[in-house]
Amino acid sequence: MNAVPMRSRLWRAFHQLGSPPYVYRLAGRLAPWLGVASCVLLAVGAFWGLVLAPPDYLQGNSFRIIYIHVPSAYLSMGGYVLMAVAAGIGYIWRMKLAHGVAVCVAPLGAWFTALALVTGGIWGKPTWGTYWEWGDARLMFELLLLFLYIGYMVLRMSFDEREKADRVSALLAVVGVVNVPIIHYSVEWWTTLHQGPTLIREGGPSITMDMLIPLLIMLAGFSLFFGWLLCKRLQGEILRRERRTRWVQNLAVEAAA
């Protein structure tokens, strides 16, 4: 008896999330809050990580790069999973908005992947003694992740018709998601120059609390920052996809006035 209204409520929420005007307004309302919260967290986390956290016993101050490298790498992988799930939903349920989410995640994910590679290289020089090592599985598969993001965007560009681009690029996004667990486990499956995972490992994080707290703050700050930009990009994407609808044209007139 109770299950039916519960289920219908869930379906209504699902359908609302498929409604462009609803999501456009939701994103517009969320964006400023996410923006302010992420900037505060990033400022606090960066100050804590650069000034208050102690230096590492072995690496000294170069370890402070962890506070931007790890969140970038985590977003590069989390972003890809989000993109693949959204593209998959869009493909199966023919939900244009879900494809729109995947389209908006791609450039953000690609930028954070590039950041993870660059900050990792800068960190590698004073610790390993090299910026880059061809042949290290962790580095190779993270680079492959960047190519997957770029491939997704380039593949879309090769289609004139948006719906066809949605369908074909969604399959690439779903196929590429297999790379994400490979990146995570690469340091355990093979011998690598890159060290093992510090946070997500058996026995808990292998970093002391005074170094861990700013890292968690930065992870939260980067995540909210990603959400903020995703909201703004999604708004733009919805306007482009729905430009022929009455509600978008009314909105344009209102914005001009």
Binding site: I122, K125, R233, E237
Partner: peptide, 28 residues
């Protein structure tokens, strides 16, 4: 090393924020 890594990160994040807002403004 530390400052170049943080500098690059800051630049990329500021650029992305600007690009996201421009993305919506251009559409409008």
């Amino acid at each position: 090393y530390v400052w170049s890594a943080y500098g690059v990160t800051l630049a990329v994040m500021v650029y992305n924020a600007w690009a996201a807002y421009r993305h919506q403004a251009n559409a409008l």
